[in-house]
Design a protein around this nucleic acid. Structure first.
Length: 796
RNA sequence: GGGCCUGUGGUCUAGUGGUUAUGACGCCACCCUUACAAGGUGGAGGUCGCUGGUUCAAUCCCAGCCAGGCCCACCA
């Protein structure tokens, strides 16, 4: 073989193999197999823009497991899906076409959304495939497709029947920018600078003045009460009085409540509908009046009188100015405080009262905690996030959203009495704006006109049904099989959506099946950009996978993904990609060496050389370790162990030691070497297959396939670790390597080539121990002879 | 305020209640050795965040503290 560069051509090979996998349906779920099923509740990526390597990271984690399980003998159900309905997708479309939903009529806009999502999904699909993932693309869904709409609407109707879904007027979190209700989980914290104003109020009787500190003076027109702490001596005398709100001439009750913080501001606080969640608590507790201050787009209502129609910001500025004019502001301090903003648009969240659909579940907190305990969490501590979230829940789940693009509620209301009319289950999916209700007249008041629901069902209420959607696909081909899929084997997902997706899926699974949705949950971290910030579509700091794949390779991307411990975030750094490329080159070169020596039949020889037995033993140890690690979803350990073993044990030592026999004349000794070379390399290759999926497949296709007969390494059998009975074997081999290291040290110290010949003297017991390995030791150390005595290495 | 995670050579990282603490990148010296110079061999470099405790023995277990990150709550 000629000296020179021998690099694995990732570009050509990866593309070729990816096509091969898809065309040959290597990863197809087998509907007829009797093998045990391993089912994965794959996260359908949200269609809201281009993906980045952070996405590829967590999808590769799932893929590592899928590929391992397939080789480990499971019939792997690894579906694919897109989450392409609701606000995130609508926002993407609005940005793409440069127009708002309100610029179109509803149907036209929905058409636009459907077209745009189809377009980008097709392109995204190609990128996903280029990362080397291995789902069965014939088992695929979209959360906007007919199946998902049917299942989501059915879930909703079932929940109404169970008295779990209910419609009510209640304070909800409202985004004035998106003009829709949002859920608690969609909030983000943002620190903002603002002013703390000391506003002068007075008591109705006696005109006694007092100060209330507030950050939101624009809420004065919605003030419904003021509160002080019952132990606060300063305000004891205010009991049963009424206060006058400045500028607006409202009078409101003065009330005592121990939730007031005496230390904050002046110790007396106004309650408005609704400045914050505390206001809601008081409003409920004391059945206070409701003053509807904000319109849907976040402007002041008629209650604000001459400030009506102004935005919150404008109204605040004007009211402050006017208060100052009347000398009603006695102090103002600049402060920083955290406010809730909508994670999708960053706009401040307000509270308003509206009719919305809710799912009642606060009474089931204990149940959900119990279900969380039944699921096995990897890593374990991630369960805390689930527990923490449930403990902090204080709202029922608001599932209605006031946007056009999504799954409609299958509901009409009687125009006269507001009676709820549900669609017939057999009709589903339906759109109440287009379809007629299943009855002619209202069963309650016999009126014959109905109002269709315009709201849509929030995305999470649909995506929490992914196991049901996949089961539905399966049941179309094999009804019995789908029943075996409760629960699924594994839910893989990232940690940021534990309160959304993991939790909601458990909730729905309990309501509909009274079971946990999956046995295991594996949590992935985020990809962080080189500065340590989370890569995100909206921040635009995501690195596109294409960049990495073109510069390095898909295998390098997978290697990077496998270098993280489950659940931990990982910084993007090129170091790991460079290391991966080096490993790939090393593997390809080792393969060239193998090809030279493994021509012709490979048979297990009658007698194995002693060192070769040791090689098998060490390789099997690696197999055992990696199998255990993979079974615990610890791909990071597999990657680490396999890399170390392959490079430093297999290549640096084993291959060097085998060389003399491979090039030598003794046929029996050579056959023994050839056999272990073949066996060990194939085992190592298989261990790497889930991680470096392309190069291992390329090597398999080029050489091993013709002998092993499986179509692809990815459906070949996972290696087995044989038990070796000989207890001294490991000791012998370890001693061998220890002596080899000493010889190398000696040569390096003297600045000599490793080819330098030596005279080796070994202590009696070592020489005896290595009795059967002396020939190998001689050749690898270039020893002319091995004598007995005090350990010494003489360079010749 | 509550909870969780992390802290190991310059950088990234493995790991264990018990000899000299793993590997990579970088650094230094040497070596063209018939798979590979994108290689090989060897080397320098660490009080394993700090302070106590448990123990014959702690980087590892416990407590407190410090630093970084995350989740939740509060946010008049």
């Amino acid at each position: 073989m000629k000296k020179g560069k021998n690099v694995f051509d990732s570009k050509t090979w990866e593309k070729k193999l990816q096509e091969f996998w898809v065309n040959e349906k290597i990863f197809a779920f087998d509907f007829k197999s009797h093998k045990k099923i391993f089912s994965i509740d794959t996260p359908p990526p949200t269609v809201s823009g281009w993906m980045h390597v952070g996405h590829a990271l967590s999808y590769t984690h799932k893929d590592l497991i899928a590929r391992y399980k397939r080789m480990a003998g499971f019939n792997v159900l690894y579906p694919w899906g897109f989450d392409d309905n609701g606000l995130p997708t609508q926002k993407y479309v609005e940005n793409k076409i440069g127009k708002k939903a309100s610029d179109y009529d509803r149907d036209e806009f929905i058409e636009k959304c459907l077209k745009e999502t189809r377009d980008i999904e097709e392109k995204l699909m190609r990128i996903w495939i280029s990362t080397g993932i291995s789902p069965d693309f014939d088992i695929q869904y979209r959360t906007i497709d007919e199946r998902a709409r049917r299942i989501s609407q059915k879930s909703f109707i079932d929940l109404v029947d169970m008295k779990r879904a209910y419609r009510t007027t209640a304070p909800i979190l409202w985004c004035p920018e998106c003009r829709t209700a949002v859920a608690q989980v969609e909030l983000e914290d943002k620190e903002k600078g603002t002013f703390f104003y000391d506003v002068t109020f007075e008591l109705e009787k006696g005109r006694k003045q007092f100060t209330i500190s507030t950050t939101r003076p624009e809420f004065l027109p919605a003030c419904v009460a003021v509160f002080y702490h019952p132990d606060d001596k300063r305000y004891k005398s205010f009991k049963h009085e009424r206060a006058v709100v400045p500028l607006f001439d409202l009078t409101v009750p003065v009330l005592e409540d121990k939730r007031v913080d005496m230390e904050k501001g002046s110790g007396i606080v106004m309650c408005c509908t609704f400045g914050d969640s505390m206001d809601i608590e008081w409003w409920k507790a004391y059945s206070l009046a409701y003053r509807d201050l904000l319109t849907e787009d976040g402007k002041m209502s008629h209650l604000a009188k001459r400030y009506a129609g102004k935005t919150i910001k404008e109204a605040r500025e004007m009211i402050v100015k006017d208060l100052k004019k009347e000398k009603k502001i006695t102090g103002e301090r600049k402060i920083k405080h955290t406010v809730n903003v909508h994670e999708r648009c960053g706009h401040d969240i307000e509270f308003v009262i509206k009719k919305q659909w809710f799912i009642k579940y606060l009474d089931l907190k204990d149940k959900f905690l119990e279900l969380g305990n039944k699921v096995k969490w990897y890593p374990k501590y991630m369960k805390n996030r689930y527990v923490n979230w449930i403990k902090g829940l204080q709202w029922d789940w608001c599932i209605s959203r006031q946007i056009p693009y999504g799954i409609p509620f299958p509901v009409w209301y009687c125009k006269r009495c507001d009676h709820i009319i549900l669609a017939n289950q057999k009709q589903l999916p339906i759109d109440p704006l287009k379809d007629n209700p299943p009855i002619q007249e209202c069963p309650k008041c016999h009126y014959t006109e109905f109002i269709p629901e315009k709201d849509i069902i929030n995305t999470w209420a649909t995506s929490s049904l992914t196991p049901d959607i996949v089961r539905d696909i399966i049941s179309k081909k094999n009804k019995g099989l789908s029943r075996k899929l409760i629960p699924f084997s594994l839910r893989p997902q990232a940690h940021d959506i534990i309160p959304f997706w993991a939790f909601n899926t458990i909730v729905k699974s309990w309501f509909h099946h009274k079971k946990i949705p999956w046995n295991d949950i594996m949590i992935s971290g985020w990809g962080l950009d080189p500065k340590g910030k989370k890569m995100s579509k909206s921040k635009g700091n995501g690195i596109p996978p294409k960049e990495v794949i073109e510069k390095f390779s898909a295998d390098a991307l997978r290697f990077w993904a496998a270098s993280v411990r489950s659940g931990e975030d990982v910084w993007f750094s090129e170091k790991e990609f460079i290391a991966a490329q080096k490993l790939i080159t090393k593997m390809w070169n080792a393969f060239s060496f193998l090809k030279l020596h493994l021509k012709g039949n490979i048979k297990k020889p009658k007698k194995l050389e002693e060192f070769d037995k040791y090689m098998l033993l060490k390789t099997d140890k690696l197999v055992a370790d990696c199998t255990k690690a993979f079974d615990e979803y610890d791909y990071g350990k597999v990657k680490l162990d396999a890399e170390n073993f392959f490079w430093h044990v297999f290549c640096d030592n084993f291959l060097e030691i085998l060389k003399s026999r491979l090039y030598g004349k003794d046929a029996a000794a050579r056959d023994s070497a050839r056999y272990v070379l073949y066996t060990c390399f194939l085992k190592v290759l298989k261990i790497f297959a889930p991680i470096l999926s392309h190069i291992t497949e390329a090597i398999y296709q080029e050489y091993f396939k013709s002998i092993e007969k499986k179509k692809s390494i990815h459906i070949s059998d996972w290696p087995k670790a044989n038990k070796i009975k000989d207890k001294t074997l490991e000791k012998k081999g370890d001693k061998f390597l220890e002596i080899l290291t000493k010889v190398r040290q000696e040569k390096a110290k003297k600045n000599k080539s490793v080819k330098t010949e030596i005279r080796l003297t070994l202590p009696k017991e070592d020489k005896k121990l290595l009795k059967e390995m002396l020939e190998d030791l001689k050749s690898v150390t270039q020893a002319k002879e091995i004598k007995e005595g005090k350990l010494s290495i003489n360079l010749l």
